[in-house]
Design a protein around this nucleic acid. Sequence first.
DNA 1: AACATTTATATCGTGTACGATATAAATACT
DNA 2: AGTATTTATATCGTACACGATATAAATGTT
Lengths: 145, 145
Amino acid sequence: MALPSKLDQQLCFELYKASSNFTKLYARTLEPFNLTFPQYLVLLVLWEEDHLLTKDIGNRLGLGIGTLNPIISRMIAQGRLIKRQSDEDKRAYVLSLTQKAQEEKEAIEQAIYDKVINCNFIDMSAITLMKNLKQLNLAFSDMDL
Amino acid sequence: MALPSKLDQQLCFELYKASSNFTKLYARTLEPFNLTFPQYLVLLVLWEEDHLLTKDIGNRLGLGIGTLNPIISRMIAQGRLIKRQSDEDKRAYVLSLTQKAQEEKEAIEQAIYDKVINCNFIDMSAITLMKNLKQLNLAFSDMDL
DNA sequence: AACATTTATATCGTGTACGATATAAATACT
DNA sequence: AGTATTTATATCGTACACGATATAAATGTT
């Protein structure tokens, strides 16, 4: 019987490396803002829709509370987020952007544009790549992983 | 001027999620063997070529010593690896598979085959995906990231 | 209303992952 | 040979990332 194909081994590995490379690239770009990549993802979510519950952010990023909570705590300490107990549900907490976090949006997006988008390789075949990745993640979401 | 494109934001995010999903899938498959995904990657490397130096494994996996060393230490404690000081270069250490690690290769490959390869989504468009990912990682390697 | 279950968050333990610093051995240079 | 630089590994500090457990509030059941 066929053993794990080379293909599969390479796929998981290429994905692992690509994600790591991308994270490193973003990390360097975000360092001047004293931001990590996961923290930036939280900002992306809240820039799109502010005043979300912890679980909402977790759902959108696919992160559990054990990962998200420390990230949020640090972002509160940084003065980027504010946490308020929800009125409707006293178990839940509403996360909101501070003025600082709202104002730095443009500068951060510009930095990403300069350093990341200008890496021409993004254009390569990003459409196909994205399509495949989305299909992949869709398949995972149907797997109750 | 165009802000960071939606495309880019989605690309980095889809990659992040896909890698995380894959790692989780592998983690579950490898758990019965008391193996983590990065530890499995070290085994993959050494199954292909045994008796490598720490730096060789690091190069092939794209991992620094700060990440790799704790992984190797745990694998030694697990009885999977043996570490011997190199004769040619007394700074370097040769990592070798124990008999246990050699013998469990088949069983682990079978487990991966059953749980991962049988996820039909692998077939989808893995060829295209792989090609794009390799291109991406090649571009990164030219960036002294 | 009393109780059981579910849900939202919190905390803990283990294991990456990276950058910075430290150390000893090897190599290059004068 | 003696010194400077590079190289291979080790250790540390910070920050994810996940699963397990804990707690309190909300919901469902009888």
